[in-house]
Simulated assay, not measured.
Amino acid sequence: MKISTIGSLLLAAGTLTAVAVTGFSPVPSPTYAVAATSALVDHSAFDKLLKKHVSAQGLVDYKGFQADEQVFNQYLAMLSKTPPAANWSKAEQMAYWLNAYNAFTIRLILDHYPVQSIKDIGAKIKIPFVTTPWAAKFFSIAGEKMSLDNIEHGILRKKFDDPRIHFALVCAALSCPRLRNEAYTAAKLDGQLEDQGRDFLNNPAKNKPGKAAAQLSKYFDWYKGDWTQNNLSVAKWVNKYATVKMDDNTKITYLDYNWNLNKQ
């Protein structure tokens, strides 16, 4: 995932009960109506591959994906041919783009495997004005060449106004949120995103919240504008999911980002 300033990088079935913290109000989660009829895209093939080749900790068996490459490519081909339509529900559209981002990221790694880091791929790119793997247009949706950046910044961040996407998009690095070992679906989307938030904020390898001082993922720095829109704040988002709470005076620093591949 590309970050804005350096080539910059790169986020419920019911709303969590707010834990009372002085000065903070609960962060509302968007709720998405599910259409009465399901979308034309069936994510079950991707769901089976994720269950088979991704651990509970989000580590990926890339060799396993290579062994099931035919099934995986068929799923990607279906995504390419069936973009979200205007009559899809918001949840269906969002689930489609989250799955597409994560699936095409896996495809990118497989295209260059073995690699130690997705950033190693950037050094191999020989396309004018393209210096990162997230900017490379290596797949198509509805006949239009697209990049991972197009999905993240041009569609998900722009259209859905939901910072929780940063808990769900996975850039194949150890400091990314956990790659969920199930596909996103419209029916379960809110619960899945809430679970991703709890997992991310309470994983000490990725975030270390605290009252006096907090060491957070660089996501909360890189995407600060997303977390502070709608009169919210980084602290309010952290407090929604973390078991250890912050307040207005908490000193925030950011953890170094581990770009090593999220492989088993």
Score class of each variant (00 low, 15 high):
residue 3 I to Q: 06
residue 3 I to G: 09
residue 5 T to C: 06
residue 6 I to Q: 13
residue 8 S to M: 06
residue 8 S to D: 13
residue 16 L to C: 00
residue 17 T to C: 00
residue 18 A to L: 01
residue 20 A to Y: 00
residue 24 F to E: 09
residue 25 S to A: 11
residue 26 P to H: 05
residue 26 P to R: 13
residue 27 V to T: 07
residue 27 V to A: 01
residue 29 S to Y: 11
residue 32 Y to G: 11
residue 34 V to H: 12
residue 34 V to D: 08
residue 37 T to N: 14
residue 38 S to I: 12
residue 39 A to C: 12
residue 40 L to Y: 03
residue 44 S to Y: 09
residue 46 F to A: 07
residue 46 F to C: 07
residue 48 K to Q: 15
residue 50 L to F: 13
residue 54 V to W: 08
residue 56 A to D: 13
residue 58 G to L: 05
residue 61 D to G: 06
residue 64 G to F: 05
residue 69 E to F: 14
residue 70 Q to E: 15
residue 71 V to Q: 15
residue 72 F to H: 12
residue 72 F to D: 11
residue 72 F to A: 09
residue 73 N to F: 13
residue 75 Y to R: 12
residue 77 A to C: 09
residue 77 A to Q: 15
residue 80 S to I: 06
residue 80 S to A: 15
residue 82 T to L: 10
residue 85 A to R: 14
residue 89 S to V: 10
residue 94 M to W: 09
residue 95 A to F: 10
residue 96 Y to I: 05
residue 96 Y to F: 15
residue 98 L to F: 06
residue 100 A to Q: 12
residue 101 Y to H: 12
residue 102 N to Q: 11
residue 103 A to Q: 11
residue 104 F to C: 01
residue 105 T to G: 12
residue 105 T to M: 14
residue 110 L to W: 14
residue 116 Q to D: 15
residue 119 K to I: 06
residue 120 D to K: 14
residue 124 K to L: 14
residue 129 F to Y: 12
residue 130 V to I: 15
residue 132 T to I: 02
residue 132 T to P: 02
residue 136 A to S: 09
residue 136 A to I: 06
residue 142 A to V: 05
residue 144 E to V: 11
residue 145 K to P: 05
residue 146 M to R: 14
residue 147 S to R: 12
residue 148 L to E: 07
residue 149 D to I: 01
residue 149 D to G: 06
residue 149 D to V: 02
residue 149 D to H: 07
residue 155 I to W: 10
residue 158 K to F: 09
residue 158 K to G: 02
residue 158 K to P: 02
residue 160 F to I: 08
residue 164 R to H: 05
residue 168 A to T: 02
residue 169 L to I: 13
residue 169 L to C: 04
residue 169 L to A: 05
residue 171 C to F: 06
residue 171 C to I: 04
residue 171 C to A: 08
residue 178 R to T: 14
residue 178 R to W: 00
residue 178 R to N: 11
residue 179 L to G: 13
residue 179 L to K: 12
residue 186 A to T: 13
residue 188 K to E: 15
residue 189 L to W: 06
residue 189 L to G: 04
residue 194 E to C: 00
residue 198 R to T: 07
residue 201 L to R: 04
residue 204 P to R: 04
residue 204 P to L: 03
residue 206 K to M: 03
residue 206 K to S: 04
residue 207 N to M: 01
residue 207 N to C: 10
residue 209 P to N: 04
residue 211 K to I: 04
residue 218 K to Y: 01
residue 219 Y to N: 10
residue 219 Y to R: 03
residue 220 F to N: 01
residue 225 G to Y: 03
residue 226 D to Y: 02
residue 228 T to L: 00
residue 228 T to Q: 11
residue 229 Q to V: 03
residue 229 Q to E: 10
residue 233 S to G: 02
residue 235 A to V: 05
residue 236 K to V: 00
residue 239 N to A: 00
residue 239 N to Y: 03
residue 240 K to R: 13
residue 241 Y to Q: 00
residue 245 K to Q: 08
residue 248 D to T: 06
residue 248 D to G: 10
residue 250 T to P: 09
residue 252 I to P: 10
residue 254 Y to W: 04
residue 255 L to R: 12
residue 257 Y to C: 08
residue 259 W to I: 03
residue 262 N to W: 03
residue 264 Q to N: 11
residue 264 Q to R: 09
